[in-house]
Computed example of a mutant assay.
Amino acid sequence: MGRRCRPFSAHTVETGDRRLSPSEHLPESGFSANDDLRPAGPGRGRITFWVITTILSLIIIIAGGSYLYVWNGLRATSPGDVVQVELKAGTSPFNFAEALEEQGIIRNAFLFKYYLRYKHEGPRFQAGVYELRPGMDKQSIIAKLNAGETVKQETIRFTIPEGFTVEQIADTLSKAGYVDKAAFLALADKDQVWPDTDASKNIPKGAKLRHRLEGYLFPDTYEMVKGSKPDAIIDRMLQELDRKLDGLPENWEDQLAANGVDFNGIMTVASLVEREVVVDEERPIVAGIIYNRLKEGMPLQIDATVQYLLDKQKDRLMESDLQVDSPYNTYKVKGLPPGPIASPSVKSIEAALFPKKTDYFYYVTKKDGSHEHLFAETLKQHNQNIAKSNETAKQ
């Protein structure tokens, strides 16, 4: 007989080497509905690789481009001729970077600013005019600015003696060819604020001053850049007064109230002492006499205030000179003049601030060439001193 066929069962199906259970059915299409529809493993890996490669390439390109931008912006410029660049006082190092770029000293001011910040450079830069050459590396530029290797500029030098008036100062500078006298006097008389100075802000407004800056232009020897304009010279002299005041004892401002005057009054008293006294030891004594007469309501009767009104100094004042109608004439007007009559020295300012307390009300110059004075408490003693001084002159 032939091989017996096994009956078909609803529970099993034979396939190849094994039988399928009822729960296992052969799909008609030849694959399972639960199979993954995504590409096979090797294809998916290739896509991931290219995505990562692209991202890394972009990062490298951006980083490389940034590096090249910074490197190019900070590298030295092409060599060129020396140029002069001025770093003005008070100018920010970051603002100065703009000027360096304009002059071709650096390539990129924006990057140079942040390089200075990164290196903590800039605060030690010194003001002045520098000679810089295109092609210098950034460190050489920074080192030169830190060292203050400025160009030695041609300067002018002038000396203003103690006790000079504004008129005399203008005349001295004009004769030296440094200023136009009329222009200088116009500035000295102009009612304006000098923002870089402090003492000058105490000059009273509306006062009948002959010259507004009288007494505030400090007498000293000055050296300035050649070609300095009148306003620069005035500003420098006003600044010098501020510096001298800073060197006074710390309590000097308390003396204003103690002496019963304001700052302009102190400068006025100092100018009177300057024009009246030559011997330093006598300055505080004469200052004390001025305050004594002010407290008693006596006219100061100081010849120097009348001399100030004259176009030309006189060896001896006449009676007619003492009658001139002016708030500066201390023979006719009680109290201090409206303002100083000359530029006082530090010693005269100190005398005005710290006068010597005495009972003197009078003084007269000895006529023996010593420039010293004879002091008196009463008018009788004063007249005796005048007679004594005249007798000395005859000998």
Rank of each mutant, 00 (worst) to 15 (best):
G2I: 13
R3S: 07
R4T: 05
C5N: 14
R6L: 12
F8L: 15
S21N: 05
E24W: 10
E24P: 05
H25C: 13
H25P: 03
P27Q: 12
E28R: 08
N34A: 11
G45E: 15
G45P: 07
G45H: 14
T53N: 06
I61Y: 04
S66A: 15
L68P: 03
L68K: 04
T77Q: 12
P79F: 02
G80E: 12
V82E: 03
V85G: 13
K88F: 12
E101N: 13
Q103K: 15
Q103T: 15
R107M: 12
G122T: 06
P123I: 03
A127L: 08
A127M: 00
V129E: 07
E131W: 05
S140R: 11
K144M: 09
A147M: 06
G148D: 09
V151K: 11
V151F: 05
F158R: 07
F164E: 14
Q168S: 09
L173Q: 02
Y178Q: 06
V179F: 07
A182I: 13
K190R: 12
Q192G: 05
W194K: 05
P195W: 01
T197N: 14
S200F: 14
I203Q: 07
H211R: 14
R212F: 07
E214L: 02
L217S: 03
D220M: 06
K229M: 13
K229R: 15
A232H: 04
D235Y: 08
D235I: 10
D246T: 13
L248I: 09
A257Y: 00
N264I: 10
G265K: 01
G265I: 01
M267Q: 06
E274P: 04
R275P: 11
E276T: 00
V286Y: 02
I290W: 03
K295C: 00
M298P: 01
P299T: 00
L300T: 05
D303R: 09
Q307E: 14
L309R: 06
D311N: 13
K312Y: 09
M318V: 07
L322Q: 04
Y328N: 03
T330D: 10
Y331E: 00
V333N: 10
G339P: 12
I341C: 07
S343K: 09
A351P: 09
Y362P: 01
Y363E: 06
Y363P: 11
G369S: 08
L374G: 07
E377H: 03
T378C: 00
L379F: 11
H382K: 01
N383A: 05
I386K: 05
N390L: 15
T392N: 08
Q395L: 05
